Simulated assay, not measured.
Amino acid sequence: MTIIPLSDVPAPAVESLLDRAFGADRHGRTAYRLRAGTVPIAALSFAILDGADLAGTIQCWPVELSGDDGAAVPMILVGPVAVEPAIQRGGIGRQLMAHMLAAADASDIAGARALMLIGDPEYYGRFFGFTAEATAAWRLPGRFEPRRLLARGDGVPHHSGAVRARV
């Protein structure tokens, strides 16, 4: 397995993998609405190849918490993490997350100390330290399960507000 920048993979191949991993109806999900109008952060978006075959991808997006107090805090939305369905549960997603987290820790990208995602707290908490401790008063542009709204990092805001795309 080889991890490469996502920008080195043709966009149609990424979209095809996302369709196989999440279904063609994935565009209606809250996370898609949240990042509308933005492009993935190239330095934090990766693909993993199995030989010449695309095995998985991870994308990160610029968002912010527009606080009810008027402050805007830059954050990064992590995901989707997509793995070819036939090889899921083989650690590929975990490799992509670990690689992205190391890149975020080493970067000075705005929001890199305030990562957020919508995902399984048992998985993302256990392996990567994401929790819902700071997110209870956050609002998103669509439906979500509050226990699945997770964040990680010393820059994560602990106040109420609306999460939105950072353009």
Score class of each variant (00 low, 15 high):
T2K: 13
I3L: 06
P10L: 03
A13S: 12
V14Q: 13
S16G: 08
D19K: 08
A21Q: 05
F22K: 00
F22A: 03
F22R: 00
F22N: 01
G23T: 10
D25G: 11
D25W: 04
R26I: 09
R29I: 06
T30K: 00
R33P: 01
A36N: 02
I41M: 06
I41N: 01
A43T: 13
F46T: 02
A47N: 07
G51I: 12
A52E: 15
D53T: 11
L54K: 03
C60S: 14
C60Q: 02
L65H: 02
S66W: 05
G67F: 10
P74L: 05
I76S: 02
L77M: 15
V78G: 01
G79N: 05
P80Y: 12
V83S: 06
A86Y: 09
Q88L: 11
G90I: 08
G91M: 10
G91Y: 12
G91A: 10
G93S: 03
Q95P: 01
L96A: 06
H99N: 05
M100H: 03
A102L: 10
A102F: 05
A104F: 14
D105E: 15
A106D: 12
S107W: 10
D108C: 07
I109S: 00
A112I: 05
R113I: 04
M116E: 01
G119Q: 09
D120K: 02
P121L: 09
E122A: 12
G125M: 06
R126F: 05
R126E: 13
R126M: 03
E133G: 06
A136E: 06
A136D: 06
A137C: 02
W138G: 00
W138M: 00
W138I: 03
L140A: 04
L140R: 00
L140I: 09
P141I: 12
F144D: 01
R147P: 04
L149V: 14
P157K: 08
S160V: 03
A162P: 00
V163A: 00
V163Y: 07
A165N: 08
